[in-house]
């Protein structure tokens, strides 16, 4: 025991610093609150499983050139539609003889690109609209929420299709279309949250300190809305990936020869009965990533739920 005193002591003092009830600086207070959330998230095995998959996805996308056994674009018509495991094609080859594994690895970059752009843009638009409508009320509320209703009245994919066909096919436009169709639910959530907080005494108190509407919305209401938005975004990620894949499948998202997973399923559709792996492999990839986001979202909901530790 005496041999290993140095290291545990050091780490336990860091642990104590992070979990203390009496932080001595702003930084420590913030870090310790984050650390507590992380401890709680860590105790949820399913959420950790989701994080592990997503971390793996990021690493795979980052190191794609090192990991991919072949170029995702090299065609070998002699080896077209090779079944998985044969001829050096671990997951088989597609109709042009391209290695499906390599295409999946490079496709993870496109998936991450779409997911992160949508996750950055849609909730922010929703947050702006929802909190402004909820806090300011009156005709601003009516106008903003009717616009939201109009967007919600259309099926998501149909509206995205309309946008893409108006803007032109391509990943950037697909992202834009997904953002334009996915912000309304976030606006609704942010507005609902705002309505429950706007008459709380702590908002009255800051109003009595002379704070203006902009300051109250951005500094006092946003921090309370963001956690429920983060949960919702994480749970919606699966849907976003599927919409992106759907646009790709319909030929309106990523264009060939780009290895986007939805477009790959679309290309494999013709051979699905005789050569199942062409459509199944990208389908599995979408399934795994969507599952990971859902697991993480469930875990985050347990950690971030503001109603749980409000008292």
């Amino acid at each position: 025991m005496s041999m290993s005193t140095e290291l545990p002591q050091k780490s336990s003092s860091l642990y104590e610093w992070l979990t203390t009830d009496t932080p001595t600086s702003r930084k420590q207070a913030r870090l310790s609150s984050w650390y507590r959330s992380w401890l709680e998230l860590r105790s949820n095995p399913m959420a950790m499983f989701g994080i592990a998959i997503l971390l793996a996805l990021v690493l795979i996308a980052w190191f794609a050139p090192l990991l991919a056994p072949q170029s995702p674009f090299t065609q070998d018509l002699a080896a077209r539609l090779t079944p998985p495991g044969e001829g050096g094609y671990i997951l088989g080859s597609d109709s042009l003889g391209r290695d499906i594994l390599s295409r999946l690895i490079y496709g993870s970059r496109i998936t991450l690109y779409i997911v992160s752009l949508v996750a950055l843009m849609a909730p922010i638009v929703g947050l702006f609209v929802g909190t402004a409508a909820g806090y300011l009320g009156g005709w601003i509320d009516v106008t903003l929420m009717r616009i939201t209703d109009i967007f919600l009245a259309f099926p998501k994919l149909i509206l995205a299709l309309a946008f893409v066909s108006a803007l032109g096919a391509g990943i950037e436009n697909a992202v834009l279309a997904i953002v334009l169709t996915s912000w309304p639910p976030y606006a609704r959530i942010a507005r609902a949250e705002t309505l429950t907080i706007r008459n709380a005494d702590f908002i009255h108190a800051i109003k009595l300190q002379g704070a203006g509407a902009l300051r109250i919305i951005t500094r006092h209401i946003w921090p309370l809305c963001i956690s429920s938005l983060v949960i919702r975004v994480t749970l919606d990620m699966a849907g976003i990936i599927l919409t992106a894949a759907g646009l790709g499948f319909l030929g309106l998202g990523a264009q060939p020869p780009s290895p986007e997973w939805g477009a790959m399923i679309s290309a494999g559709r013709k051979f699905i009965l005789d050569h199942w792996w062409v459509a199944t492999m990208p389908g599995l990839a979408i399934f795994i990533v969507s599952l990971a986001f859902n697991l993480l979202g469930d875990g985050l909901r347990d950690v971030l739920d503001p109603k749980k530790n409000s008292k």
Partner: peptide, 8 residues
């Protein structure tokens, strides 16, 4: 109710 739950 009168203190912001996310502010020190």
């Amino acid at each position: 109710a009168s203190l912001h739950p996310r502010q020190t």
